[in-house]
Design a protein around this nucleic acid. Sequence first.
DNA 1: CCGTATCCAATAAGATACTG
DNA 2: CAGTATCTTATTGGATACGG
Lengths: 230, 230
Amino acid sequence: MELENKTRGCSVDAKRSYDDACGAAHALDLIGERWGLLVLRELMLGPRRFSDLKKDLPGISANVLTQRLAELEERGLVRKRLLPPPASVQVYEATEWGLEAEPIMQALGRWAARSPRHDPTLPISATSILLSLRTMIDQQAASSMAGKVGFRFGKDTYVGVLGGGNIVISRGDPSGADVVFTGTPASLGAVVYGGAPLSSIEVEGDHDMARRFVALFSLPPKVELAPPRN
Amino acid sequence: MELENKTRGCSVDAKRSYDDACGAAHALDLIGERWGLLVLRELMLGPRRFSDLKKDLPGISANVLTQRLAELEERGLVRKRLLPPPASVQVYEATEWGLEAEPIMQALGRWAARSPRHDPTLPISATSILLSLRTMIDQQAASSMAGKVGFRFGKDTYVGVLGGGNIVISRGDPSGADVVFTGTPASLGAVVYGGAPLSSIEVEGDHDMARRFVALFSLPPKVELAPPRN
DNA sequence: CCGTATCCAATAAGATACTG
DNA sequence: CAGTATCTTATTGGATACGG
């Protein structure tokens, strides 16, 4: 910057900080730059490779992704890891503390679901739609359900374990699940949130459970935008 | 494309959008630009004037504040209002939906409180510290308390009503509260979170209640930063 | 392929001065 | 007080080239 630092007390780094003791402000210093939170979101269900992150964050450029990952790593939210041979590829994974950011994403998602401008037809990643299930599940209705639900998006597969009104989702082999959904993240979203018929996605296994499962999710009512001026 | 628009489906405006159906991403389209969430934070306890917002957001420049307020208004989160005569001044207030963003700030604050780099000695606004009380109150311990707590920060005064394990805070006249704290936002923070003695802030009224009140709040343990490399 | 690094154009943010 | 206007600096995104 030509002329040194601003010398304003910066808590996180010498860059742009809010200089505010408020916890929310500090959180934004940590994950508030553009793409920061979404990069972390993509790591919530397990380690990913650079190119997978890039693919699932449409619009991010490689240099920005590199920089965000480096910052998140430096701040202790993300870790670089080398998978053991024979894979020997480098992956990025969220740290324990990084994973603890999930309630932030849930609060954001729950709030934005009421937005009149939310467009559910935009692209959505597998991680996003699966995290949203954890956010939007009707705990009351789900408390009477238990079992394993599998998801196949191409070769990325996940398993959700229903129990206690919640669903815990992680990467895993869906064979052996009570019901398995195969399709795209968008087609799953259309079924659970958009009222699309179950027949619009491939379902294997217990169809009755599939029906009850997709009924566990719904979106809150949209806000009515106030009159433009008073 | 030289100029023109990207023509990529943008849900919020023609500007930089994440183009992602994920709710969290949409939320960031709405309140994720720099200062956006903090401007909204300052409105959570009632309407404020432009210059008050500027004063409590140290570092924001007038043009950015103008632009953020205009965007938040256009998105339905903030409303401009003219106070009735004789005041006749213009204030900004959060809409109902804007107020519903409080859980986002709570999730951010709760998460960031564990940050090893959080610096509680930075400046803090009255709104921030009071919102943090709502976030960090020990509901278990608070469930056995009831009453009114007043706060005086210069001429800005607030009243918190304890009950049901929660505290509901709003602007109001603190006279008549069971106990009234007078000082700065920072000095209140030092007492409730920093273990500073009650004598470091002015307390009127029921001192025993004051002692029990400040004991309701505490910060979660810091994360231990993992070894820098594996 | 998997990432990084570099260059460049477009934007957003910051500082400051200014006006009704 | 409540913003605008203007100018400067910083960050972003896109393209592309480079090293393993």
